[in-house]
Design a protein around this nucleic acid. Structure first.
Lengths: 200, 200
DNA sequence: TCAAGAATAGACCGACCGGTCTAGAGAATG
DNA sequence: CATTCTCTAGACCGGTCGGTCTATTCTTGA
């Protein structure tokens, strides 16, 4: 800790991205595609063009810590989408978030939402991972719930509808991946958005 | 093929279950809990009290064939639930199916629906598994869709609602597993059942 | 009783797993 | 320049993976 904590990006922050970030985004891509156990550290390292030493330097907790970090980053991204544009109606924001997800689904050849669910399966072997996913779901639900209350929904209705929306999105992404088509996700999204309208 | 095909259960079909069945149900339990990669052949073998030779005798295709067989069996079970009692309304049958699933979710300490989704993640490495899950979803959706049409829904509405129901159930089971509670699944089930009522 | 196939049994294999460890390159401090 | 610390680099490890292979036992029909 000789120098400050803005460190690493000291000399040139344009192209040669931080090794840590490279590892993280490589892990994200691979986990999304093959699940947790389906990806080896060597796969991540190869994709990130980094040696094993760097990995354990940046993530002393190893694979598990990488997984948790990936979940945290995804969650942060989604929450920021929901946090922005407070003025608009929730259903509008939801459609916007959904379109982003749809685009990702198509761009990644319908391989996207295995990540959370795959991590959930690790809960018994690696509690931290499972809990990271569980709290990610919880945070997202709470964010939607808060918006719905703000839109005028009663407390109970807001809670239930928020939960249903998350389930629909999750289930929709799953079926979309199975059918190799965004259509199911779009359907789920439409239904979810209508749930966020007053008077159903 | 010297003797007929009812074979194996020849001498006593009460307690000492067929080795193949033992392997299958052990695999089911373990896959459900730990996902596909999370379970080793040795785990399955130990749980089934069977040697490796038996496994490759009954499942020459190895782990992948076991996975496909498990998916097929689950699908068969669910479809038979939907097939039975054609007289009743779809929403009634759905509630019944859902209650069975709820019971399983509670009995297994909220570890149930990772199976399909975990297998889906194997699609790139093992297409057969992914396709088995994909067609399982498709079959279930078709079964519900057929019932809804029979209940008087228009073709398009039946198709969309059936798809939404499957998504809700899948998403609900996922969140239930994450929150370690059946409540989310029950909520999804309620919502799904109401989707199967005429006039929403 | 005996031959033949089904089924069981488990030693064994190379590949790969996640993780550890030592060594060196590079930048910042005195 | 020497020191110190961050970060990179990759050889290496024991363990486990899915899968193969060679017996041996059980069952069955002639």
């Amino acid at each position: 800790m000789a120098h400050g904590d803005d460190k690493t990006k000291a000399s040139g922050e344009n192209q040669p991205i931080d090794t840590r970030s490279r590892i993280l985004s490589a892990a994200f891509r691979l986990f999304r595609k093959h699940g947790y156990h389906g990806v080896g550290l060597n796969d991540i390292l190869a994709a990130a063009s980094a040696p094993k030493g760097s990995l354990y330097h940046h993530f002393p907790g190893g694979k598990e810590e990488i997984g948790v970090a990936v979940v945290a980053e995804i969650t942060r991204g989604i929450l920021s989408l929901f946090g922005a544009s407070r003025a608009k109606k929730t259903s509008t924001v939801l459609m916007h978030v959904g379109e982003q997800m749809s685009a990702t689904i198509e761009r990644t050849n319908h391989e996207i939402c295995t990540l959370f669910t795959a991590f959930l399966a690790e809960r018994s072997a690696s509690p931290k991972l499972g809990e990271a996913v569980a709290s990610a779901y919880a945070e997202m639900t709470l964010a939607i719930e808060a918006r719905l209350k703000q839109d005028g929904f009663a407390a109970r209705a807001a809670k239930e509808r928020a939960a249903t929306v998350v389930m629909l999105l999750e289930g929709g992404a799953m079926i979309a991946q199975a059918q190799q088509s965004v259509a199911p996700f779009s359907l789920a999204l439409k239904h979810a958005a209508s749930l966020c309208e007053r008077g159903d």
